[in-house]
């Protein structure tokens, strides 16, 4: 998003008013971002490296990491496929109800995850619509690993879609039409024309989706049952440790998720550099 301005950027020297603006803006935003970030690592490392590594290698925490990776590992390919398909349908065609469809696709990221979790239980819980019937068939989809994976996938389903759609919309349909008229098939057009056009947005969307699914909290809290060493994800583990007597443990686990978030930002910055250098 480092947009190239039509106006050359102006230097600050000799312009006290501009300097004040920059100090105010960069100061406020910078602090708002840097303070929580710093706090996570400060509290994580307050008792030293040895304690830090001890917290991270605790059996329950490692298990939580595995579970979160599993949820993210399932959510990611599903959301990528879904996001690309949905963006293609919405961007390359016009049909009645398109706006509503976009809103529905984006809904899971726009309402409280608690609502998603509760709604999920209304279907798959034992007091829910299908829960008792599924249970009779021997299928359990509440308060276990499966339910965690499914709600994580639902909540993060719009991530890739959201990043890819604006680009697909902006690029219109001419290139695809040309490709088809020249004799390319549907898949060929998608792989050769559409995908290369949106690949960087896709990369960022995938990263964002990964970070979000690792960090999902509200919906997972509702459907997990928080069994230690079984259905506790990383965020639930943070919640649990935060309310225990050792605060540094919660922040140690939080620092893992924070590092992943920072890597996501690095990827994004890198992607944008590639993008602006390839377009100029």
């Amino acid at each position: 998003m480092s947009a190239v301005s039509r106006l050359p950027r102006v230097p600050l020297r000799g312009h006290p008013r501009r300097l004040a603006l920059v100090l105010a803006g960069a100061g406020a935003t910078g602090l708002l971002i840097a303070l929580p970030l710093g706090a996570v690592f400060y509290y994580a490392l307050r008792d030293g490296w040895r304690a830090y590594l001890g917290h991270l290698s605790a059996a329950d925490t490692l298990h939580a990491l595995g579970l979160s990776l599993l949820a993210a590992g399932v959510a990611l390919p599903v959301n990528t496929a879904f996001g690309l398909a949905a963006a293609w349908a919405v961007a390359k065609f016009t049909f009645r109800g398109r706006r509503l469809l976009i809103s529905l696709i984006e809904l899971p990221l726009s309402i409280s995850p608690i609502i998603i979790g509760v709604a999920y239980l209304f279907v798959f819980g034992m007091q829910g619509l299908l829960g008792p019937w599924l249970d009779a068939c021997g299928v359990r989809l509440a308060f276990n690993v499966a339910s965690i994976v499914i709600v994580t996938t639902i909540v993060t389903s719009p991530c890739v879609f959201r990043e890819v759609l604006p680009l697909m919309l902006a690029q219109g349909v001419h290139e695809e039409q040309t490709a088809v008229i020249l004799g390319a098939g549907g898949w060929q057009t998608f792989w050769r024309v559409t995908l290369p056009n949106v690949k960087w947005a896709l990369v960022y969307g995938v990263c964002l989706s990964f970070a979000r699914s690792l960090g999902e909290f509200g919906s997972v809290a509702v459907v997990s049952g928080s069994v230690r060493g079984e259905t506790n994800t990383l965020t639930l583990q943070i919640d649990l440790l935060y309310h225990d007597r050792v605060q540094t443990a919660a922040f140690a686990v939080a620092s893992v998720l924070t590092s992943i978030a920072l890597v996501t930002l690095l990827v994004k910055t890198w992607v944008e550099r590639r993008e602006s250098s390839s377009s100029s």
Binding site: P36, G215, D239, A254, L265
Partner: peptide
């Protein structure tokens, strides 16, 4: 410019405890 997006990538529970 790069850091602005942190709140999107950072889990909200982490933001909450921090």
């Amino acid at each position: 410019d790069s850091a602005i997006d942190l709140p999107f990538a950072l889990p909200t529970a982490v933001a909450g405890i921090a």
